[in-house]
Every structure is written in C-alpha cells, then in structure tokens.
Design a protein around this nucleic acid. Structure first.
Lengths: 133, 133
DNA sequence: TTGCTACTTAAAGTCGACTTGAGGTCAAGG
DNA sequence: CCTTGACCTCAAGTCGACTTTAAGTAGCAA
C-alpha cells in the first residue's frame, strides 16, 4: 500500500502518518523510489493507536506498548490503572453534569444564589477537579 | 488584599492571577504603588473560573460569561449544552473503561484475539471517540 | 536612609499532537 | 522523453493555558 491508500482507508491525513512513523508508532516496510510502502497490518496498528489515544494514553505511552516487532505487548496492569483513572473522571464528570443541569433548572435569580451551584464552585475552587483532562 | 493573599487563599500562583487579569477574567480594584490590590470578591470569581474550566469551558468562553460589572451572567442554555456534551463524554468513557477492564481480564493470549477489544479498536479506528477531550 | 524582597512588566518559552510551508524528487501516464 | 502531480524532507508554526526569565521598581522594616 502506498501512503494515499493508507490515508483513504484510515481516514488520517498523510502528515499524521509521517509524524507517527517519525515517532516510531508505525513503520513502513520499505520504499518504492522515495515513496513509502506500508504493509496491510499498519491499519490495525492505527486503530490500536486511536484506541489508546481515546483511552487517554499519550503517544509516548502507546509507542512503549509496541514491541520491536511491531506487535503490541500491553500490560494488563496498565489497562486496569487506566480504567481506574477513567472511573475517577466519570465520577467527576457526572457530578459536574448533574450540577450544571440543576443550575440550569434552578429558580434562583442568579446562579450565585443557588446552593447547589455554590457547592460545586467551592469544590472546583478547592481543586477537587484538578488533575483531570 | 494584595496578590500574595489571593495566592494564599486561592491556591493559584501569582503568574496565573496576572494572566487571568490580562485576559480580562478578573480585575484588580487598583494599585498601591505598583502593587495590585484585589477586592474580596475575586476569590469567588476564581472559584467560578475553576468551575468553568472543570466543566470544560475555555477561558475565552468563561470570560464571555462575566458582564462588564464583573458579575456573572450565565445562560442556562449554555449549561444544558455543556451537560449534554458531558453526557456524551461519560458514555464514551464508560464504554472505554468497561472495554479496558474486559481486556485486562480476558483470557485470550494476546489482546488482539479478544473480540471485545477488537470491537473497541474498530470503533476507535472509525473515529467513534474523536472530538472528545 | 538604606536595603531587602515582594512586587512589577514584556517577551519568550513549554507541552502534546499535529499541521503547514518551502523547496526538491521521481514514478507513471501520454 | 517529458510533464505532472503525488510524494518526499526538514524546519517552523499552531493552539490553549500557563510558566519562566530578565530587568526594573518600590513598600516597609531597621
């Protein structure tokens, strides 16, 4: 496959593919002239990268999950840790969502008079939501 | 209050306070010599900013929520829209968390042989989790 | 009055994940 | 054979939210 086919089948721009290759996340199997040639497996690798990104791993972390052979070797421990992080995020986002919905429905003239809103503000001010995103 | 007291009571570094002032998010009530003097209300404003950030609003969006007087005027509509966005995120994160937990527990020798994991990969590769974070 | 130190400014730097631009090469179709 | 346009490289730019640095000023204790 040449790069244009990978672009077509992955939906990613060519610049991203070159960037990923430079970072060591994917590899081309060789060149035809100057042009990169990719193996079909690169599409699966790209899906895995997308999954890792969506789960919140950095590109460097994802790079570390590929062995020298290009096959993934993912520690189950790492998945569990990330799942726990996601649990934290989900809890916070849920509290935030409920707070926002309450404030939107709250009859107080200004949000500043709504105790629910103020409680959420207090939490945020105290850093209860820091270290996320 | 001088800046050091705001630092102490808000937990934010002075550089952030100056940056927020420059962005128009907060305002000092004047100067004592060169030194900024802040009104007590700035602490509440900072909490509100922290809340906005935690909910996923950008600093520019938050700035737009303050009237010229410094009092917040927040559209209920905007809160509902953000709540809906959060719902989306929560759904995706939940799916991701469950998928990771499954993969961690899955007896398949490699994650690549786990159908649940592969399904999640497929979704990610197809962009099902794009436009988040 | 001196001197310490906390404050001030403006500009530049950081971080992650890419994108963009300038300038160059070459495989393939006519 | 020649043109075309898809591909190449390397460096620099972008975005958001700050932080850092360098150089300067002034409030307050002694």
């Amino acid at each position: 496959m040449d790069i244009s086919e990978v672009v077509r089948r992955s939906g990613l721009p060519a610049s991203t593919l070159r960037f990923y290759e430079q970072k060591g996340l994917i590899a081309s199997v060789g060149r035809r002239g100057l042009h990169r040639v990719f193996a079909a497996g690169v599409l699966e690798q790209l899906s895995l990268i997308a999954l890792g990104r969506a789960a919140g791993f950095s590109l460097d972390e994802i790079a570390a999950m590929f062995g020298a052979d290009g096959r993934p070797r993912i520690e189950r421990q790492q998945l569990l840790e990330k799942a726990d992080e996601l649990d934290q995020s989900i809890k916070q986002l849920t509290a935030m969502r409920d707070g926002l919905r309450h404030a939107a429905a709250c009859p107080a003239p200004s949000h500043m008079e709504c105790p629910t809103f103020r409680r959420l503000m207090g939490l945020a001010g105290a850093g209860a939501f820091s270290e996320r995103r």
